[in-house]
Each structure stands twice: as structure tokens, then as C-alpha cells.
Computed example of a mutant assay.
Amino acid sequence: MENKKGTGKTALITGASSGIGQELAKLFAQDGYNLVLVARSVDTLHRLAEVFELNYGTAQVTVIEKDLSEEDAARDVYERVQSKGIVVDVLVNDAGVGVHGKFANETDWEAEKSMIHLNVLTTTLLTKLCLRDMVARNEGKVLNLASLVSIMPFPLMTVYAATKAYINSFTQSLVNELKDTNVTITALMPNATDTDFFNKAGASDVLATDMVDDPVVVARDGYEALMSGKPKVVPGGLVNKAYEVMAYVAPQETMAGMMRYTLTPKSEIARKLDERKPLFWAVGIGLAAAAVTGITLAARNRRTLAAD
């Protein structure tokens, strides 16, 4: 019989009804964990529970319907779990939302306030409540969904990026505080991912939606990093790692311009490209000439080195 490493343990996952959260829940179920699934879409959670029980033999799936943007939502979830006698061995703070638009005059404050409550306050309090118990037992794991934009400016989703910067800093500080315990905490820092995130944020037509990663890959990389006790993970391939390096070394204004471009509606980009077509042709020819020159010089240099 296959040895499932999570048998008997419980993982609490917020935002488990879709996207990265759902894929993470599947991985925990496959490894024999009992689950506490938290989201607003209770019908979806119940269907997931049936799938996990049927496909993976999950012994216990507890479904909690909760809007985590509400005041004291985290405490309510924690107390409901405690009342059932459930010990949370792994906490996954996946739930989060974004809001798209210019902060000064396009976005809605109530939506942003709700986002801050969900992304920051609920995550912080739920982590505090569960972490306190984990430290007392000297065992446990936490996975916080940060983002690659937590280390760079992100115009047109300014407040969202700020909430993720908070989560990343919060997590890395806790890594240090927990270093003398058997409790670990990990920041998952994905690039844009193929979920319903952009649609819910009012950004379904932005360029970034053409450059999304697979949530299955993101969840797998996050799960492996969590189980290994790593402080952070940037899932995906070399492109995402390159973005991380650029965020640390490139000028902030350069990064801001690049990231704003990815959040620009594709229709607006197409219009601007059409208006500037002669300019872009000139720039394109110039870049091509520079590239050819660079390749020629590199080849000549290689021949010189070979002769030497």
C-alpha cells in the first residue's frame, strides 16, 4: 500500500474553491491529508470534497463557507475549527483578490478596503492564531500566497501589489522568528497565473492575460517548497526567475513602466501601435541592425579567441 506522508494530519486552505487553492487542495488530498476548505463558494467546496473522498480516499473534509473580507473572519474560521476538535497541521493562506485601475480616480475605495482586509488582515490574523498553536506543539507549516509583484512596483494594481509586498515581508520576518523551531513558513511568489483573478479584478483584457502560468505547476512548486521548509519559491521556469532578478537590480522606474505595460488593455496597445507604426518600424530596423552588429562582433571575438 502506498505510504501517504500526510495521513492523519490536517491542512486548512483558504480560497480552495478555484485556481491555485484548488490545485493545492488536490495535492494535499493525494498525500493523505484531511482538509478544511474555506471559501464563499460552498457548493463548489462540497463537490470537491466528494471528488477527494472518491478519488483519494480522503478521510475527513470540513467545508466552511465564509467571506474572508469580513471583519474578524479569520477568528470565526479558527473558532469553528477549534470547536470541531481539529488540529491544523498546515495552514495555506491562498485567498486573495485584486482591483485594477488608476488609484487616484478610477478604483473604488470600498473594493480596495475589502481587498486589504482579505489580503492583509485576514491572512495576518489567521496566521497568528494557527502559528501560536503550531509553535506550542513545535510542529507545523504555513504557506502564504505572495506574488512576484510583491518585490516590484505594479501600476494599475497599486494597492494589490502593496498588499502582496506586505505578505512577503511578513513571511520572511517570520522565517527568522521561527528558525529555532520545527515550524516553517513559505512565501509562494507566482507570476500571472491562469485563474479567474484578472476577471474578478476587472482586468480581463489586459496584456498579462496572454502570459499566464499553469496553476497546476504553480501549486506543485509551492507544495514542494512548503514541504521542504523553504522560505520562498518563484514557481515556473527561467523567465520568472529572470523577473525576480530584474526586480532586485533594475531601476524601479524601469520596472514600473514594464509592469504597467502588462496591465494595459490589449485594445489600447493595438491602437497605440497602429498610431505609432512608422516609429515602430524605424525602431525595429534599428534594433535589428544592432542585433546583427552584436552577433557579428560576438562571432569575430569567438574566432579571435579560438586563434589565440
Rank of each mutant, 00 (worst) to 15 (best):
K230R: 13
M258Q: 07
E253P: 00
M259P: 00
A247D: 04
A270N: 11
I285H: 04
G236Y: 05
T262C: 05
K230Q: 14
E268Q: 14
W281C: 01
V283D: 04
E253I: 08
A289N: 05
E244W: 13
A242G: 11
P235M: 09
K272H: 12
A242D: 08
S267L: 07
V239P: 05
V239S: 14
D274R: 15
M227W: 07
M227T: 09
Y248D: 13
M255I: 05
L273I: 07
I285N: 00
P278A: 06
M255K: 00
M246D: 09
A250N: 01
K241P: 04
I269G: 06
N240H: 14
P231W: 04
S267E: 13
Y261L: 14
F280Y: 14
R271H: 12
L226H: 06
V245A: 15
L287N: 12
E244R: 13
K277D: 13
S267N: 08
Y261C: 06
A256S: 05
M246A: 15
A225G: 03
K241F: 06
G236T: 01
I269R: 09
Y243T: 12
R271W: 10
A250S: 08
K230C: 03
N240F: 08
P278Y: 11
I285E: 06
A250V: 02
A270R: 13
K266L: 08
V234H: 06
R276V: 09
R271K: 15
A247H: 05
A256E: 01
S267T: 10
M258N: 07
A225Y: 04
A289D: 02
F280W: 11
M246K: 14
M255Y: 01
E244M: 14
P278T: 02
K241C: 00
Y261N: 10
A288Y: 11
A250T: 01
P278R: 12
K277M: 14
L238D: 14
V239H: 14
T262N: 10
